[in-house]
Simulated scan of single mutants.
Amino acid sequence: MNNPAEDTFFGHAWYEQVAKALGASYLDRPKQKGLRFGVSGLSVVYPIFPSGLHEYDEDSLLALVSEWKGELWGASLLRFCTFIDLEKTHILDGRTFYRIQDSTVTRISALQDWSKLVLPSSLQRNLKRACKLGVSIRDATLDDTDAVFKLYQTAVERNSGALRYTRAYFEALLSGNHSDLRCMLACVEGECVAMNIAAFQGKQAFYLHGGFVGEFSEYRAPDLLMFTAIEWAKKKGAESFDFMSSPSSQAGLIKYKEKWGGESRPQYTVDICRSRFSLYVFDMVMKGLELKRKIYK
């Protein structure tokens, strides 16, 4: 897999906006290995960022932890993703202090074999309906930042969530001419009613963000956008399309992703600290940030 830091849309400006959106600060890339962020006096290293870009198996997981402990990357916490259930395997017991957040990741594994014909009839009808009702799709530009952010904001509020990303974050995404990043808007009579942001990395494609205006749900614009994003990724030569992780409690969202041909499995985000106290402090900091986002969303 390519180093994300070497690709066009993974740059310092983007990292800074991501950090700001998450209530952190972008520090640096220690020894060209991942990224380091600062959170309320603590530093967090991601060997791969975003962490979901790579899943560690048992051997690489143990090697990563040993390297982090031995080389002292100058971070209080190490975060990565794995498909190994550490609570069942116990492979890190006695080695370090850690916590696990479980989620469900959905992915089309053989994208080059994927076609519209594999979609359920309900989705195929939705795509036809969107075209029949005149939904048009165009690529977003920097001038569309407000529209994109508003659609994201609407999606978060619909699900009673907290705003994790700022307007400046989406402005950073739209500010460059990135061939490996595509932000699309679906329009009805000139009004932007849905958006979809997908990215291409190595041989993988990822669905990053989406949102729509509920009053226009009958137009099925989000379905047409998702289909276009998957087709775009396939034409670029991607071998898989990753819908990224979803909270395991959101069965409806997971089922929707599976309708596109995605297969789901558990994914675990692991936070490793050098001491139980630093893990406790980090947990309190993150809970405080989440509460702040809910209050000031």
Rank of each mutant, 00 (worst) to 15 (best):
C273P: 04
L77I: 14
S275L: 11
Y15V: 01
L181D: 00
P222H: 11
T269Q: 00
H90C: 09
G190W: 08
K116C: 14
G52E: 14
A162L: 13
Y56N: 03
C192Q: 05
A13L: 06
I91F: 06
Y268D: 12
G190Y: 06
M284C: 15
L174A: 02
L86K: 08
T82H: 08
S109D: 11
F9K: 14
H90Y: 10
K31V: 06
V188H: 07
H209M: 13
V44I: 14
L224G: 01
K259S: 08
T269S: 09
N177A: 14
A130N: 06
T154V: 06
A75L: 03
E6G: 10
G261D: 02
L127A: 07
P120W: 06
L208S: 04
C187T: 15
D144Q: 02
K132I: 05
E55A: 09
K292H: 11
F83G: 07
P247E: 06
F83H: 11
P50A: 04
R182M: 09
A140I: 05
R265G: 02
I100E: 04
D242K: 01
A147L: 12
I108S: 00
A221C: 13
I230H: 02
W14P: 06
I108G: 01
E290C: 11
W260M: 02
K294Q: 09
E290S: 13
I230V: 00
R36D: 11
L185V: 00
S66T: 14
S122Q: 14
D7F: 06
H54K: 09
M286R: 03
D223K: 07
H12D: 15
S175A: 15
Q17F: 03
A21Y: 02
F83R: 14
K69F: 04
D180F: 04
G23F: 00
V39G: 05
F170R: 00
V118P: 02
K236S: 11
E67G: 07
V285L: 10
A194M: 07
L64E: 13
A13D: 12
T269V: 07
F243C: 03
V118A: 10
V45F: 04
G237S: 13
C192A: 12
S179A: 15
F49S: 01
R125C: 12
W73E: 02
L163R: 07
F243D: 01
M1P: 05
K132G: 10
S240D: 12
E191L: 13
A24Y: 04
L127E: 04
S122L: 12
G74H: 12
T106C: 11
Q250C: 05
F277G: 05
C187Y: 05
P50K: 02
L289H: 11
D146F: 14
K255C: 05
G11M: 04
E218L: 13
S66V: 09
L163Y: 04
S275V: 13
K128P: 05
S264Y: 02
K116D: 15
K236E: 11
P4I: 09
Q112A: 12
A229E: 03
K235H: 13
Q267N: 10
A162T: 03
H54F: 14
M226C: 01
C192V: 04
L185W: 03
K132P: 05
I100L: 07
A130P: 04
R129H: 10
